[in-house]
Amino acid sequence: MMSDEMLASQVLEGDLCAFEELVNKYKKSVFAIIYRIIGQYQEAEDLSQEVFLTVYEKIYQFDVSKKFAPWIHRIAVNTTISALRKKKKVMNLSFDETYIQTLDNSPVNSMGDPHQYYERKELGAFINEVIMDLPESYRVIITLRYQMDYNNGEIAEILGISKENVEVKVHRARKAMRKLYMQKAERKGDTI
């Protein structure tokens, strides 16, 4: 089976079938990243298409000695951030410290046995519900880390931030996510 990097080389030679294979392979992950940042289905789909067209046009810039996945996902992140900038005029993708401080008000450790309150399925549903309530920057970092299974180094490369910074941000994003679903559970009566 041909590697993504070999497929990219073939695209450069004009092989559209190789490009189609790359589209099929990456459409879900590209869409997921974009959707998690932008939060709207139609817009995410349009931007996904734009990302693949950009990939096709810029494929000559891809260094075949490197991995293809981080390269395309970086394009996806940058394209989406750029679209957000145009849309909002003012970019708002920085990690909001006040947001996490608000969530930090309640102590984390005052909890009982999680199994007593959550079934795995139920926990998954809670997470799914709150994920879109997180700031975009937290959503994208959680998506890259847990959905795409990127390690901190790879995320650092995609987002252009340091590896240490990624670790801190993943931690904050997880903490924020937990607070949100706990609050949601409390409102629903599943107090923990």
């Binding site: 559209l16 490009f19 189609e20 589209v23 099929n24 459409k27 879900k28 869409f31 997921a32 959707y35 998690r36 289905y41 789909e45 996904s48 298409q49 693949f52 067209l53 096709y56 999680p114 199994h115 959550y118 795995r120 399925k121 926990l123 998954g124 549903a125 997470i127 799914n128 994920i131 959680i142 998506t143 847990y146 959905q147 299974d149 997880r174 937990r178």
Partner: peptide, 27 residues
Amino acid sequence: MENAVLKDALALDYLDDNFTRRVMNAV
């Protein structure tokens, strides 16, 4: 528990089936 469910919880499976065809047409 979160680690175990995160991947599935984040899964998005509602990309239009015709997406690839549209991209290839555009290309």
